[in-house]
């Protein structure tokens, strides 16, 4: 068949290829009369898809203890090496998470993050979730290294994750 295309003579080419151009122009023409999809951001807010991956939250259980146990699985899975975790040990007087271990320090470099969501998938306790917030711009690079206090949800369930869920 390829041979047939190459062997077309001049008139045959005009007809076949002209039809293709007309077909494409028809699509363009059709869209010309549809309403535009451009969103007038920031005056107008975009519609966010249900599974959108935005900024990260470190979530809490309903009793206020942290889900994160500082296991660093997110660190090792992260393809852009954006996460830094330093673990510490819970003591009876200073209980931060369930179990023995918690994240004393947790940082995500938002300049490096590619929002792939691997960290959320790797997390054994469901501590880290990617939320819907995408407005992360800043004037200073340092401000884009999110620290633990910035990542932690302000109250259990604030990120949208059910605080009563086990994992």
């Amino acid at each position: 068949m390829g041979g047939a295309v190459r062997n077309r003579n001049g008139w045959q080419r005009v007809v076949v290829e002209g039809a293709a151009i007309l077909k494409g122009m028809a699509v363009t023409l059709r869209h010309l009369f549809r309403p535009p999809v451009t969103v007038q951001y920031p005056e107008e807010r975009p519609r966010i898809a249900g599974r959108f991956k935005g900024r990260h939250w470190l979530t809490l259980y309903a009793d206020g203890t942290e889900r994160c146990v500082g296991c660093e699985l997110c660190v090792i899975v992260c393809p852009s090496q954006a996460i830094y975790v330093k673990a510490a040990e819970n003591t009876p007087d200073h209980r931060v998470s369930r179990g023995e271990r918690y994240a004393e320090d947790f940082q995500i470099n938002m300049l490096r993050c590619i929002f792939c969501g691997f960290c959320e998938e790797a997390c054994p306790t469901g501590a880290i979730v990617l939320g819907r917030d995408f407005e992360l711009a800043d004037y200073r690079r340092e401000a884009l290294i999110y620290t633990k206090s910035m990542l932690q949800e302000p109250y259990p369930g604030a990120s949208g994750r059910d605080p009563n869920r086990e994992v």
């Binding site: 500082g70 296991c71 660093e72 660190v75 090792i76 673990a87 510490a88 040990e89 023995e100 271990r101």
Partner: peptide, 9 residues
């Protein structure tokens, strides 16, 4: 060494 690092760190 407890909780100071994971092997990959």
């Amino acid at each position: 060494y407890r909780f100071r690092a994971r092997p990959w760190d």
